[in-house]
Amino acid sequence: MTMPDFLLSAAAFVLVMVALGLIRILRGPEDVDRMMAAQLFGSGGIAALLLFGVATEAKAVIDVALTLALLAAFASVAFVQGISRPDSDDTQETRDE
């Protein structure tokens, strides 16, 4: 049971957790819950990628994890923007609801 094996099994475990978390997307009553599952998918993906990158000494995979961190943040911000301005022309009107 070398160190890379342990890191790879930890990455697999994290991915299984994220897969379970995606059930929230099916059941989630509101869009916010679905977005949370996407956010969890982002961080779980980063953790698994980092574990995989360090286990296999592949430098590029760590950069992939950095990019995923960036994209996960953008996805959530885009979601929040989309919710608060559905018709996206007069933000003041939607905020007064």
């Binding site: 957790m17 059930i23 929230r24």
Partner: peptide
Amino acid sequence: FFLAGTVGLL
């Protein structure tokens, strides 16, 4: 903590 977070999320 990933396990705890996922269970909490569900």
